[in-house]
Design a protein around this nucleic acid. Structure first.
Length: 670
DNA sequence: CAGGGTCTAT
DNA sequence: ATAGACC
């Protein structure tokens, strides 16, 4: 049946062009590596992610200006706060000055963010058969939808474009959504209407340009996925749709909160290049601060004439140098960039890579990440009061080691499914009180300790531009007792400190017995070795995702889509609900405790005082927990109210989609 | 500045 | 094994 549907529609369509000629590209004659527009890449960026996680756990905060604090700065803030002048990375004091009733929540424990990120990612990776997904940090995801888009393009019926159906799986024809193929979903850049552009509405005319059709289809896919992220999980996002990663990401930033943009490369380089030209080079993903300043310094040597903008000698940070400035520079070429960027440790084809990025060319693939991380690290900074004595260092090492061991157990183990033991068949109710048996998915071979000395004190370096003399590290094999699941985290951690971390510390700081002025400690495990499993593929890196490889070649994609193995198992097991075995606090408690803790001394005080005297902080928490309702009703865009449930634990009214997140926070606090 | 994380080059 | 660059 399923195949019948597909086959019918397929044969009703004219055969696909065997190969679409790649557009001519900058530097095409030199090099074949320039990417054709063959791919379709989506980029998702969850709007102010940390703040959204907090809001989902405490919906009453949604309507209030909210900032998420890490140490003394705001890691992020919601849009209500931004409307009142609060910005990302703004010092807390400054933010409070700008917005006195700002609600500030501590975001130093990343566990809730990590958890939310993983669930959203699990959804995205299971949503589109044959797609590969890559996570960038906690709040961004790339999705290579080339195969799915090709499949759906072949199924398009030119006579019923308004009533199209996007298939998310070739196996299950029911899985998908309807859409209007005569238009794009969301915004398009450059905006329609310019140049000699046809209006998109005119029937099959739209189908003429293959790249355009693919991106149109992809825009609907992105729109659908974003809607589900919002409706099912409570997370709004910004989406970018284009033909490679760098363009997709840039596209997504054009229309920021809760919107999406499809970047059309179709009018040839001119459009794309004009679009890119105005960006400061630092804003191009893949061009970091180091590269930017090397280029800026070369083009406009410091101490010489002012720049095009005629600005004052600003910080060298944003540099003001635009893509156009670089590309218009006399003699500019990949080779010149290579020379500019050449330094010990520099990437080999570095100049060419930057050159390509500046032209919107990016051949890098969307890398499907493994289930297990390749590295786990835990760190804390001590800018306000650097560490100088052995007892201080020991105390911090112990704290770090404890959370490291906890993280290892959380992220590197999985519930052990006893293969020959169907005892656990009644799995709905786990055996009460018994520890869930866990098994290592992968284990780290290496333990590393890094430190870095306070820049301002005694170790004089120019604090502004060069963070060069920063981290130093030593590593050694991870002792095997670290993998002992039978002992409490704290016990393992203690032994780890004594037998491994302290020796590493001595190796790092030979000579001085004290007085290191340490502003940072980082403990890390790395070099993960996948543990073999019975299911045929190693539990680690690429496990189980090889199948997506099958969809890469154009010629075979249809057949492969039809041959797609049932992916429902992967989809459902992809969202592991590891119950957090943490004894920690909810975020709110964490904030209160943070302020009261003896630990920091310096930065906690502000929060406590503010919370106590200034109305904002505590009031909200109190109202949030106890008083069930001054609650502003939940409304969606049109003002219709959103279905809510009462939380059994706290009685708070919570939108249904947010309930699971809300409950998790209770679970963590208890 | 924060707290992580990934990849690359020696 | 260690550092650097990017996010």
């Amino acid at each position: 049946m399923k195949t019948a549907v597909a086959a019918t529609i397929t044969t009703a369509l004219p055969a696909q062009p065997q190969h679409e000629a790649p557009r001519a590209k900058v530097g095409e004659k030199k090099n074949r590596e320039v990417d054709s527009d063959a791919r379709v890449i989506l980029h998702f960026d969850y709007d102010c992610f940390y703040a959204s996680v907090i809001e989902n756990a405490h919906p009453a905060l949604r309507t209030r200006p909210l900032g998420v604090r890490q140490k003394s700065i705001l890691a992020t803030c919601n849009y209500a706060a931004r409307a009142r002048g609060v910005r990302k990375l703004m010092p807390v004091t400054q933010a409070r000055a700008a917005c006195p009733d700002l609600v500030v929540v501590c975001g130093e424990d990343l566990a809730p963010f990590r958890d939310a990120s993983r669930r959203l990612w699990a959804f995205l990776r299971g949503a589109v058969a044959g797609a590969r997904t890559e996570r960038l940090g906690l709040d961004e995801v790339f999705l290579d939808a080339t195969a799915a888009v090709a499949y759906n393009r072949a199924l398009l019926n030119p006579n019923a474009l308004h009533d199209s159906f996007f298939h998310l799986s070739a196996q299950d024809p029911e899985r998908g959504f309807t859409f209007d193929a005569t238009r794009f979903a969301g915004c398009v850049h450059p905006p329609p209407g310019g140049q000699g552009e046809q209006h998109a509405g005119s029937g099959a005319a739209v189908l003429d340009d293959p790249v355009r059709v693919r991106l149109m289809l992809a825009s609907h896919l992105a729109g659908y996925l974003r809607r589900r992220l919002e409706d099912d999980f409570g997370y709004t996002s910004s989406g970018g749709i284009s033909t490679n990663k760098v363009l997709a990401k840039l596209a997504g930033s054009i229309n920021k909160p809760r919107n999406q943009t499809t970047l059309l490369p179709v009018q040839g380089e001119i459009t794309i290049q004009e679009f890119l030209d105005a960006y400061q080079i630092r804003e191009i993903p893949g061009i970091g601060s180091r590269t930017s300043s090397l280029i800026a310094d070369h083009l406009f040597p410091p101490g010489k004439a002012a720049r095009a903008g005629g600005q004052e000698p600003e910080q060298q940070t944003p540099s003001g140098i635009t893509v156009r400035d670089v590309l218009r520079h006399p003699d500019m070429s990949p080779a010149l960039l290579n020379r500019i960027l050449d330094r010990p440790g520099a990437e080999r084809g570095g100049g060419k890579k930057i050159w390509n990025l500046l032209h919107g060319v990016d051949a890098s693939e969307v890398k499907e990440a493994g289930v297990a991380p390749t590295q786990i690290s835990v760190e804390d900074t001590y800018m306000a009061r650097p560490l100088n004595t052995v007892p201080e260092v020991l105390r911090e090492l112990h704290a770090l080691a404890t959370s490291l061991v906890r993280r290892m157990r959380l992220d590197l183990t999985t519930a052990a499914e006893e293969l020959g033991d169907p005892c656990s068949a009644g799995s709905a109710g786990l055996p009460p009180r018994t520890q869930q048996k866990r098994r290592w998915l992968a284990y780290p071979k290496t333990l590393r300790l890094s430190t870095y000395a306070h820049p301002g004190k005694s170790g004089s370096a120019s604090p502004t531009s060069i963070p060069s003399i920063s981290r130093i590290s030593r590593s050694q094999p991870l002792p095997s007792f670290a993998l002992d699941l039978g002992r409490p985290c704290a016990e393992v951690a203690e032994r780890l400190v004594r037998e491994a971390l302290l020796p590493l510390f001595r190796r790092l700081h030979v000579g001085r017995a004290a007085g290191w002025n340490l502003a940072l400690l980082n403990v890390c495990v790395a070099n993960m070795v996948p543990v073999a499993t019975d299911d045929g593929n190693g539990g680690g890196a690429a496990g189980g995702r090889d199948i997506s490889r099958m969809f890469r070649t154009q010629g075979e994609r249809l057949r492969e889509w039809s041959a797609w193995e049932d992916d429902t198992t992967t989809a459902t097991t992809a969202s592991p609900s590891l119950s957090p075995p943490r004894g920690g606090n909810g975020i709110i408690d964490g904030e209160a405790e943070d302020g009261a803790a003896a630990n920091g001394g310096s930065e906690g005080t502000n929060d406590v005082e503010d919370a106590g005297s200034a109305s904002a902080g505590t009031e909200v928490w109190a109202a949030d927990d106890g008083d069930s309702d001054s609650d502003v009703g939940w409304e969606d865009e049109d003002g219709a109210s959103v279905a809510q449930q009462r939380c059994a634990a706290c009685g708070h009214a919570v939108p249904i989609f947010a309930m699971s997140a809300h409950e998790r926070f209770h679970a963590m606090g208890d």
